[in-house]
Amino acid sequence: MTRLGRWVGKHLMITLGLLVLLYMYIPNFIVALMSFNDASQSRNLYQFQGFTWDNWLNPCDPLGMCESLRVSISIGLAATLVSTIIGTLAAFALVRHRFEGRSTMNLVLFLPMATPEIVMGSSLLALFVAAGFGGQLGFWTILIAHIMFCISFVVVTVRSRLGGLDSNLEKAAMDLYADEWQTFWRITFPLVFPGILAAALLAFSLSFDDFIITNFTSGQTVTFPMFVWGAAQRGVPMQVNVIGTLMFLVALGAVIGGEVMSRRRARGRVRAAS
């Protein structure tokens, strides 16, 4: 066998894995590319016509797009805040307490994750209509729906962090003269906080990106995904790709920044261990 053959044999899985990863990035490349597309000359919006900075310089040109972005961000923030608080409390109850109805609650929390969005969306619409709110769909009904489907994900995320917490740490704090509140705020909360933060990020991205449930509960209100959906019927403005690329870069930057910081902290650890 040749050296190349051996190399491929040894690295087959990682090569295939990287190919899959590449496949996952194709749309992102296209989106980034199209954000520089000069679409002013042609109506065929699914072809690259020419390079321009215009889309990046005037991101709010398309009518209603930035307004829809603002709506999505406010709903996302509000849904994140409420669902994170409610979900974190529930996670504490489930991990730290044995109470009647606990297993029922576990099931109820699991169900929204196992239900197709179309069923949840349509059932909410059915409820709002049956309750006579059919004419008042909008910001508040979207928010209610988003909080609902975010809660389960928050609970799952916080619960796993809390479950991994060594309960001896709290006992040690009590042994060292910290009362219940001090133990909670000085030991439990700081240690669970990364889990809460991760849950909040997840909730925000779920809410921000949701289309199906939002579509059923939005009435006349337009969120960013709904704007994209509506635009897709006529021809998507290239600025949508600018927003898509921007979101990707911001998120990636945040993740890399966090990783670099934790690596820096870990470096001393490695030195001490060796």
Binding site: N28, F211, I243, A251
Partner: peptide, 10 residues
Amino acid sequence: APFFTSFLVR
């Protein structure tokens, strides 16, 4: 990371 770009756009 790719999933931070709105899935409709992708």
